[in-house]
Design a protein around this nucleic acid. Structure first.
Lengths: 334, 334
DNA sequence: CTGAAAGCGCTTACAG
DNA sequence: CTGAAAGCGCTTACAG
């Protein structure tokens, strides 16, 4: 049995003493620089590290370097499936570059988002990833903070911060065009009331290009519930659209559920196309056809934008892809 | 316009100088101790803080205190809806106690779980929350680390670590009993191959108590796909169980989707009860009846177990609740 | 190739 | 009630 309660943790001084070198040398070995170390000395140090079970104190290193090898991630709500998948991808991508992700939900009641941003910076994160919508004030704050920052998922290139995302309008057009190919002419859009949602614009554009009158335009919250509420109203009313483009998979899922609960058939009565490409919409029935955002690529690019800004353009817009399932009326053999 | 590139951040020395006090006093004010400060002096310090826009360097504080005001959370995959919700609840609960959560996915390829645990500790987290299953070796490691640790969601009280979770067996019994009340007698269980899953035991116990022969016992992975695969096999075969208890909502959802895709009606042909109580299963159709784990309470208790261990028993087992929807055969007016 | 030493920005016993 | 100073455990210019 080993002793418990090892009161004083092993420090680099212990390692230096054990290996018979200076503490500087221990650092050189552990960090592979900035100075070279003789092979034999290096061996002795590594041995000491092994024997003593030494682990660097990362808080000390962070203080010394002014940087904690962490990246701060601000997300509105990590439970949202799309953002959960994005968080996961970001976690992997930052781990690839040996950074930890400090994830913070901005829907906290107790503290303002600005406060959270400041706290992240106080912790010496080397960069900020913003996966939620900022107010003008919050954005101004970030800019004065003078820390590498990238917006992900949503950004306007009017502002000063770097951004990674998809072309919402093109994605929406793709979805609507697919519905048009099915022969539907009455195509509604369900999305948020945000001022300039590219998805809403893309919906409109695709209909215009096909000489179709826009169908109903419904604004709701970005959540299962938002879609569900709309679905209930539609199911009760008498003016069902023939097809719907939903601005998110969550909305699409809530909509689908309410419609079916209300006895409306999907896709026979109402066809649905979602947006995001989350895994979850492949596990409802009918499975939801959706516009896929390439989240691994987005995550990878966002991390690069932070750590190697010169290798990445200021704004990166990825193309989306249509994942065809049954909710649009296609019959998929799978 | 304000200057950009503020090279040297404001430190507590600047504040002290501006306020005409020592740096110690600044600390006393900012930390409300350990010494009292005269009201007027305090005012001057707070003023200086405001004017200079001072923010403490949390890495320095962490080094000094040997503790970073962070809690490390190890989760297998934050995309799993139940764990996403648990992470969110833990985030809120730790924010209530002004700790940040350092979330780490243990499904990373590049690095072992033990390595991740060590890294968390190196970062001076003041506690560890383990929301994933540890190997014996990993668990032994955690114990030698001598840091406050709590397992959440899953724990065996044979081991040395504190734990918070639900009574899996009782929860499963509750689910099965509900299916029995519906009059079903052929009730299957779909879960993992883990050695001692309380849910499997509870299923068996409830059937035994009702003098019913256990139905099929199917082992699969804990994922949408695991449930989907089983559902496809069942739909193709000719031996459909009349009812199923799934060990997780994800399994239940995958199962439901595959069954419906295969033309099997739920609940008319096969009734389903899930486990976890995630939000998502309220947004599939039919909505899935599920055994709810009280995740806010669990999260709150886990955080308390770490920060105020004396106020919490070593093992806390919460009761589950049945959330009745349509998948079991109930008709819910909602 | 190696070491002595200053510095990072806090906290906190100790003295007054 | 306040301050001077040591200490936390690293990194890294500087000197040799």
């Amino acid at each position: 049995m080993s002793d418990d309660a090892r009161p004083r943790p092993v420090t680099r001084a212990d390692v230096a003493r054990y290996a018979g070198v200076s503490t500087a040398v221990v650092s050189y070995v552990l960090n592979d620089g900035p100075k070279a170390v003789a092979p034999l000395t290096k061996e002795r140090v590594l041995d000491a590290v092994r024997v003593l079970g030494y682990r660097p104190n990362l808080a000390a290193r962070a203080l010394s370097k002014g940087q904690a090898d962490m990246l701060g991630l601000l997300v509105n709500d990590n439970r949202n499936p799309f953002f959960a998948e994005l968080c996961h991808a970001l976690d992997q991508a930052s781990a690839d570059r040996s950074k930890q992700l400090l994830i913070v939900n901005s829907d906290r009641m107790q503290v303002t988002t600005s406060e959270q941003i400041r706290d992240l910076v106080s912790r010496q994160v080397s960069g900020l990833i913003i996966a939620s919508v900022l107010t003008a004030g919050e954005q101004a704050l970030v800019e004065t903070l003078n820390i590498p920052t990238v917006m992900i998922g949503q950004f306007g290139d009017t502002d000063g911060l770097a951004g990674v995302g998809v072309d919402f309008a093109a994605g929406a057009r793709m979805g609507v065009e697919h519905l048009i190919e099915h022969g539907y002419t009455d195509i509604a859009f369900i999305g948020s009331a945000a001022r300039h949602d590219g998805r809403e614009r893309g919906w409109r554009e695709a209909l215009g290009a096909a000489q179709l009158t826009p169908g109903a335009l419904v604004h709701t919250t970005f959540s299962y519930e938002g879609g569900y509420d709309v679905g209930q109203q539609l199911a009760r009313g008498d003016a069902l659209p023939r097809a719907v483009l939903a601005a998110s998979d969550q909305i699409a899922t809530g909509l689908l559920t309410a419609l079916r609960q209300g006895g409306v058939r999907v896709p026979e009565d109402v066809a649905i196309v979602g947006f995001d490409g989350t895994t979850a919409v492949d596990y409802v029935w009918p499975r939801i056809t959706t516009v896929v955002q390439p989240r691994e690529q987005m995550a990878e690019t966002a991390i690069r934008a932070l750590l190697e800004p010169d290798t990445v353009p200021r704004y990166v817009e990825f193309a989306t892809q249509l994942r065809v399932r049954e909710s649009c009326g296609c019959s998929v053999t799978d």
